[in-house]
Nucleic acid binder design. Structure first.
Lengths: 115, 115
DNA sequence: CCCATATTTTCCTTGACAAGTATATACGTG
DNA sequence: CACGTATATACTTGTCAAGGAAAATATGGG
């Protein structure tokens, strides 16, 4: 995972932008309105996200439609992967009867929305 | 995930410390030697990691043995979870499409995982 | 071409953080 | 209790990024 992605994700405003984009791609003004940011500030944060490979942009007349670039966050996932056993092992200790499906998505699909 | 954890993880030195701790718990001097950091610098970074809940510390005579606190990174994992479908869906879409024709082999696309 | 809309970029100021050096605290031993 | 080892904190300095305001760029319509 590139350094830029980390520094991009530190800022809560940028993470808020990603959360809005998680629902669907959006234009800059849409994001600015939805989050209460000024438009220049939104643009600047989007610039950082774009430079770090976390979002992609598509032009539509004057509007720029931003969307999450899955590759960026997949790299974060890859960084995290070797650590994941640290807390999965604790679950194994409770009851390791799980099938041998190794690293498939084991989360409980509960509403983990934070904040 | 708390804000502190993000700002702690942004620093490459601190992520390097976590990587060393992933192998096993270690004393401060051990980390400093292994990474080529000065001892005060190592202590300061460990302080940040500890304040953000990413590592825990245990005293052993004069030595302080640091270890990864799984809860901290588990929160990062939880933050990442809702995004994970963004790149898993791309694989699922392939499999599901092939699967609409019933009995096709659903495992042949496992090597399309990129990066 | 002039104007309205949508977005980006530039300039500037201010605050936060990292590294280095020096100093302080804690522990074990003779 | 003086000393060596191990770790933590204080202080200073330089760098960098965030935020606001203003200007610049791009698109579409009369």
């Amino acid at each position: 995972m590139r350094e830029a992605a980390w520094s991009a994700l530190v800022d809560p405003h940028r993470r808020a932008i990603l959360e809005m984009l998680r629902e669907r791609p959006r234009a800059v003004g849409d994001l600015a309105d939805g989050l209460g940011f000024s438009q220049p500030m939104t643009s600047k944060h989007l610039r950082v996200l774009r430079d770090s490979g976390l979002v992609s942009v598509r032009a539509e007349a004057q509007r720029r439609i931003y969307a999450i670039d899955p590759d960026g966050l997949a790299e974060l996932d890859a960084w995290l992967a070797p650590y994941r056993r640290l807390w999965n092992d604790r679950l194994d200790a409770l009851g390791r009867h799980l099938d041998t499906d190794s690293d498939s998505d084991t989360d409980t699909d509960t509403d983990t929305k934070e904040k």
